[in-house]
Design a protein around this nucleic acid. Sequence first.
RNA 1: GCGAUCGUAGCUCAGUUGGUUAGAGCAUCGGUUUGUGGUACCGAGGGUCGGGGGUUCAAGUCCCCUCGAUCGCCCCA
Length: 425
Amino acid sequence: MSKGPQRVRGTQDIFGEEADRFQRVVAAFDKVRRLYGFRRVETPVFEATEVFARSIGETSDIVSKEMYTFPDRGGDSLTLRPEFTAGLCRAYISEGWQQHAPVKLATHGPVFRYERPQKGRYRQFHQLDAEIIGSGEPLADVELLVLAHQLLQELGITEGVMLQLNTLGDAATRDAWRAALVAHFEAHRAELSEDSLVRLDKNPMRILDSKDPRDRPAADTAPAIDEFLTDEARTFFEKVTAGLDAAGVPWTRNARLVRGLDYYRHTAFEFVTDRLGAQGAVIAGGRYDGLIEALGGPPTPAVGWAAGIERLAMLIETVKNRPLIVSIIIEDEQDRGRAELIKARLRAGNIAVVEAFRGNAKKRVEWAKREKHDGIVFVRPEGHPLGAFHLQRLDEGAGEEHGRIRTAVFAALGEPMMLSSVKSE
RNA sequence: GCGAUCGUAGCUCAGUUGGUUAGAGCAUCGGUUUGUGGUACCGAGGGUCGGGGGUUCAAGUCCCCUCGAUCGCCCCA
């Protein structure tokens, strides 16, 4: 189409109402995380490649195919963060945050994955992230889930999103279950899809949630993890579910919800919607008690989740209750001084004021209407018999709104008679 | 990496079985009427029809390649 540089694939320029919704998600998260005592942290957008490679497993082809990795000038390999967790764990180790343990952390920002874009999926996208590092208590899992639930409530996402919950058990449980799964699928090798035959070697648990109908019979008859839960693991999961019930957070068990990497233990969960096509997970997380140790730190239990800001933003309504905004229109630049005074007073009164930079009065009126401003303040010439300005309200219907803009503008402009007089209704 | 659909002015789109100088609305710019409760009037600028190649007397319209978009598969830390 047009010449000049183009947006690179999988990136987005977020503008206008979409940007407002994006910001609303972030604001809600910031509000809620404070209510739970999560501390805001900022970590680098890139890390040594090793941080992510070790967190994901060096053998995984995620590392080679789906991360933005590049050498810096000194020859070190760096990687744009594909998630927050690994970087936060690195910081926990390298910055001595162990002294704060258990520490509750919240952050948000861009993350990067080299993937094919599709609905709700970008190469640079944005996440909210909450982690509790240094606590192995089921209470920590519960608190994160209640926090996530409240975030959705805060955003008005009350329908069409369900919390799916599972347990992966402790290390002993996981190993036993995995072995049983492999044995089961090996026995049904002939029935599996080509994709699942590959999964059998690389990531057998993923066969459980395969979308290929050919895999369903074998997947549906696969041994359930419950048969392998140790007493400790079972007790842990029961405490989590009991906590959710006590907090009034609805959930459903999804025994096929799995995590491929070995350091995941116990709780795994996703808040899932059917409103976003194939990318249905809006908040996902779990307990990763083995990760920090894998990164070279001390054995440290931890649990956390991440949420896609774009996906949440797609689920919320247009921002309502925006602050009042008025257009100011002057007819003659000679009135500039008075106009600036009025603008300053309105803004001091918490009323947003904008002024079209060009066009005659007619065009400016049309612009204000098009932009759906709440009103127009016409600045009158010096000595005008009807006063210094005239307020025209542009709001639709809503009688309450009518009064609101009038009251607010007159209050902000203070003693209107000092500016001259104000036209009454 | 794979598949399907799509790609015409800044934006949203029309463009008949391929046929003369490619259209509309909105936006932009200019002017008229004006002096104000979302649509007054007139006019103008703006497109090598994503890019390249091919078929044809003739291609926005057909074929191939390429790039991009959308949705899905794989993957999903």
